[in-house]
């Protein structure tokens, strides 16, 4: 029972990360219809930038988190402007290839600047406490609380501010939004900024727990894609639910069946689900 609860707790922690990262991706994919394949790499870069502020400049955890958020937000705007906007009217595969170019660029950037060896950020909250017989790290708990706060904040932003509803308007009907005088390019830039900033938050929270490495973005990015597809493109509740489900499945599969194959469960689940329903669980009729 203790093992089970421990795995579920870990699963919820991973699921929080997946949910935030997938949330950012679903905004960009569902709203702008851009397959930002480099999303996981933005997360990776977020981790390194947190390391730069904490490890190199010696700032505290919270100021570093805010600064990382700002840097990544700007980077997202830059990426949208340079990489994706010129490809707006091109075939879809071109944006996909550009994304692969961008991810190769970001991964080698991290490799060149920080080197291939894993880096570690000192844990600001190393305390542990016992609950129901399982060990809970304070930082791990913080990941979950941070994720829930962020999800709630984003929900309020999307539903109760003008900018948020503008984004929704573009998602529902791009041409219609343009006719109503919405500057679609600006909405794209803002969406990208939010998307990368959420990835940065996930990276900042998680980086004191795990080693940073330039290749850590690739698998996470793929998982975020899986979640977005399973949850339905552009569906925010779908991304959140999908993130938590995937996190728990992985933790239980890794704990009870085989740790080496834990990623296979996630990818296998996707293949099986898309076999049955080619546009995802909550997906629209045609992609």
């Amino acid at each position: 029972m203790e093992l089970f609860l421990q795995q579920v707790f870990n699963g919820i922690m991973f699921g929080s990360t997946y949910a935030i990262v997938a949330l950012g991706l679903t905004l960009v994919m569902g709203i702008l219809n851009i397959p930002n394949f480099a999303h996981g790499h933005l997360y990776m870069l977020g981790g390194y930038i947190t390391f730069f502020f904490i490890g190199t400049l010696g700032l505290g955890f919270w100021p570093s988190l805010v600064l990382t958020l700002i840097v990544l937000g700007l980077l997202g705007v830059l990426m949208e402007r340079i990489v994706y906007r010129p490809l707006t009217d091109q075939p879809h595969i071109n944006a996909f290839i550009a994304a692969i170019g961008a991810l190769i660029f970001l991964e080698s950037l991290a490799l060149v600047v920080w080197g291939p060896q894993g880096l570690r950020i000192p844990n600001p909250y190393p305390q542990n406490f016992e609950l129901l017989g399982i060990t809970i790290g304070l930082q791990r708990l913080l990941v979950i609380i941070g994720a829930i706060t962020l999800i709630f904040g984003l929900h309020v932003f999307m539903k109760h501010t003008i900018l948020g509803t503008t984004i929704e308007a573009v998602a529902q009907n791009r041409e219609g939004a343009m006719l109503n005088g919405i500057n679609v390019n600006r909405v794209s830039a803002v969406t990208f900024a939010i998307s990368s900033a959420t990835a940065a938050v996930a990276a900042s929270f998680l980086s004191p727990i795990f080693m940073l490495s330039p290749s850590m973005g690739a698998i996470l990015g793929m998982k975020a894609f899986i979640i977005v597809i399973l949850g339905g493109m552009g569906s925010i509740p779908g991304a959140i639910l999908g993130g938590y489900i995937l996190g728990v499945i992985e933790a239980l599969g890794g704990g009870y069946i085989s740790a080496a194959y834990k990623d296979v469960f996630a990818f296998g689940a996707l293949i099986i689900i898309l076999t049955v329903k080619p546009t995802g669980i909550f997906g629209k009729k045609e992609a």
């Binding site: 996909f96 793929m222 894609f225 996707l270 898309l274 076999t275 080619p278 546009t279 992609a287």
Partner: peptide, 15 residues
């Protein structure tokens, strides 16, 4: 995999 189209196909094959 070929029941899916576009990005979906790319993701499934990548998985």
């Amino acid at each position: 995999a070929l029941r899916t189209r576009g990005h979906y196909f790319a993701i499934v094959t990548l998985c």
